[in-house]
Nucleic acid binder design. Structure first.
Lengths: 154, 154
DNA sequence: GTCAATGGTTGAGGTAGTCAACTATCTACT
DNA sequence: AGTAGATAGTTGACTACCTCAACCATTGAC
């Protein structure tokens, strides 16, 4: 068993992924900033794109405390991008939904993210295909239930 | 030109990368938390691994304001992981260096990050090799000058 | 020797995040 | 029905991160 070699490759691999992650994070933050949003706010909007969600569920998806979602929501609601609605059947839960404006912004932001991505440049079609296949296997592997959804290109 | 198809693939690809990034971010944050560090603090330690650096340069590498580095440094210095040193030749600049303890923590953290990575699992050797090749091409492409370095496995 | 540029710090202010305590509601059980 | 306990969200206190503007100290050039 070439354990030495394996270790070195893993090392390099993790490093490459860390590099790419950092790069994407930066890219994401910059794009999102053009819309006067923070990364977290954008993340929340994106979770809302497929449809309204109870706040508690959002806390789960963002992997953060419920109280954090409260604050996040306050700010987004103040800007009219999101609204709290009553949930039918349980008066405790508040369901978060995109407003029209919120939907518009969400869609525009996603569009913007798509146009110039560091990943798309630098690889030809064939390689993109291969990369996609590999990434999907990595990402799907032990992923949280239902956390990666299409952006509701409605 | 199959523009429609290309668009869809790019769409999926960006999504996959975003997913992986999110996943790595989470993973990174959790590991780093085991050492009572934040992601940013870990990032700074890592930049210091190859050797001492002037604070201004660090601000550049972390892509943040200089004043932010001051605060970051204050906290890390209070914990004895890092120290400010005078720079020979220019009494304005302060050079940041890992203490012995800081070096120990940095190394241990990196070791920890290596051991279980979401990327390593889920792919066999051959695929890891392919993925590495692709990622390196993506990351190297128009990367910031000198931002991705080996972790000084000294 | 003065003056502008540079490196770092300070202070104000905003977002993100946690935790503990609290309110309102729901559910289950008697 | 009535109470006890779980659950959803909010509030308040606190920390970290981050930016901007104002501010020293030093440097370098003229």
């Amino acid at each position: 068993m070439p354990a030495q070699e394996d270790l070195a490759r893993t090392h390099e691999l993790v490093q490459a992924v860390l590099g790419l992650s950092e790069r994407m994070r930066r890219h994401y933050a910059e794009r999102v900033d053009e819309f006067d949003l923070t990364s977290t706010q954008a993340h929340l909007l994106r979770e809302l794109a497929p449809g309204p969600r109870p706040m508690g569920e959002l806390a789960g998806r963002l992997a953060c405390d419920a109280s954090n979602v409260t604050g996040l929501t306050d700010r987004l609601e103040a800007r009219g991008l999101v609204e709290r609605r009553a949930a039918p059947g349980d008066r405790r839960v508040k369901v978060l939904a995109l407003t029209h404006e919120g939907e518009r912004v969400q869609r525009a932001l996603w569009e913007r993210l798509m146009t110039d991505s560091p990943v798309a440049a630098g690889l030809d079609r064939r390689d993109q295909q291969v990369l996609l296949g590999l990434l999907q296997r990595v990402v799907v592997e032990e992923a949280r239930p239902d956390c990666s959804r299409p952006p509701a290109s409605a």
